[in-house]
Design a protein around this nucleic acid. Structure first.
Lengths: 135, 135
DNA sequence: GATATCATAGATTCATTTTATCTTTTATAA
DNA sequence: TTATAAAAGATAAAATGAATCTATGATATC
């Protein structure tokens, strides 16, 4: 079980946008892709997922690109992860032994602990804590 | 990102062994496999992983099979999960921007929160809390 | 309105991992 | 020594992940 590389790209892209895009100047996907050494088409797929969850704003046409929405400071790690990985729980009991599976319940509460942490942390936090943000 | 089915089998097998194997009577893999509707060979591979981590004791030969070790009550969910999924962290930053990646650090502490919960919970807890354990 | 620019969507490819089974080998109690 | 049972090996189907290329659609600017 691993977080996908897509999540890695998404988180770093969000951080990058948070650091660079100071105004309403969108950043093109070529630029973003170049920095992460990945193809623009692939990264654009990831960005499209973020757009659908309104974590990123896209602008078509000349001088278009991607930028953060106005309320970007409230975007949490969990928001980004859910946009990429989906929102289904990490563990599903495949048996049907009556009501709720006791094992599944334990797994579920454990997952919630992780999610709590990811919900509390924002990309804005990273910038506050560290002026020297890599990339 | 999902826990594998193997983890599901492993957890349920451990719970089953904890409930049934009262003494030193090992349970054959055919029995265990039958209950979970999976092939014995496949389940045995999972059990072998558990044996290697000493979470399960195996006995070859006639009247052999699998049973729990003496100190089974201290076996946590995390022990079992690590035996099946491995112990590497869920998130690896694939870039090499200097020292520790700030994103990776956040992900790491979040993962630890989940692990803390899984470390604290044992299969013995399940039996204590619920007399009516399914399967 | 034409065009260059840029995001979106679709189709496709390749690699890796999961899931699973069958067969062979090794170990051991009776 | 033989029946029984785990361990290991080889293999294979299926699913998922990672990535690229090629259209297609939208839109500022000239």
């Amino acid at each position: 079980m691993k977080f996908s590389k897509g999540t890695n790209y998404a988180l770093h892209t969000m951080l990058h946008l948070a650091v660079t895009s100071e105004v309403d100047k969108p950043v093109g996907v070529q630029q973003l892709a170049e920095q992460q050494s990945v193809s623009p088409t692939y990264l654009s797929k990831i960005l499209t997922k973020l757009v659908k969850e309104r974590l990123v704003v896209s602008a078509s046409g000349a001088h278009g690109g991607y930028s953060l929405p106005r309320e970007w400071e409230s975007i949490s790690f969990l928001d980004i992860i859910h946009a990429i990985e989906g929102k289904s729980s990490l563990f599903d009991c495949h048996f049907n032994h009556g009501e709720g599976c006791a094992i599944e319940q334990v797994m579920s509460t454990a997952e919630l602990k992780m999610e709590d942490e990811l919900r509390q942390t924002t990309i804005a936090d990273l910038i506050k804590n560290k002026e020297a943000v890599p990339k």
